[in-house]
């Protein structure tokens, strides 16, 4: 386990209407992240949102997820992690593997980690799905050490977006 914390699964959180970017048919991840954090239980150390919709930020055509650096909120989109998005047959194992990596990557940001230059590290910046698949399932030693120094006993709430 890369993160040793208590995890609680919370209920569905509605996606805020104003986060929809009609022109791009995508959702503004920063806006959703804000709502997610606002609604998080007061005792949560971190909150991870998982959303089916494709996410973007104004300056980028898409993002796999977004997190608050040194904050509590992290958000991951499932849309581009599925094989179907690339016209391939659905594959649950691949999908879970990707989600595992991107969820921990975003959570890593909430613990103050920035991108790592090692391709095999979870904190490597993924710009393409190939980057996601190429990286390993764990933080590199350097990032893990940085993470350990930040983790205190607490809870991580896991919420599911609709």
């Amino acid at each position: 386990m890369a993160l040793e914390v208590t995890v609680k699964t919370a209920g569905d959180v509605p996606i805020p209407d104003h986060s929809f970017e009609a022109e791009r048919n995508q959702y503004h991840s920063t806006k959703i992240l804000k709502e997610l954090v606002r609604g998080a239980p007061p005792d949560s150390l971190k909150v991870l949102g998982v959303i089916e919709k494709d996410l973007c930020i104004p300056i980028l055509t898409f993002v796999y997820g977004e997190a608050q650096l040194n904050g509590i909120g992290a958000l991951v989109s499932l849309a581009r992690l599925r094989q179907e998005f690339y016209g391939a047959q659905p594959d649950d194992d691949i999908f879970r593997e990707r989600l595992h990596k991107e969820a921990l990557h975003e959570l890593g940001h909430t613990f103050g980690l920035i991108h790592c230059s090692l391709v095999e590290c979870l904190m490597y910046l993924s710009n393409t799905i190939l980057d996601v698949d190429r990286k390993g399932r764990a933080f590199c030693r350097h990032c893990q050490r940085a993470l350990n120094s930040k983790i205190e006993p607490g809870r991580v709430s896991k919420w599911t977006g609709r």
Binding site: T30, I57, P58, I59, L60, L69, H109, I114, H115, L125
Partner: peptide, 17 residues
């Protein structure tokens, strides 16, 4: 001049170190 662009670009760049 757009705050939203400044913020999202800055935080993306900061995440990248």
């Amino acid at each position: 001049d757009e705050e939203i662009v400044r913020d999202s670009l800055s935080s993306w760049l900061i995440d990248d170190g």
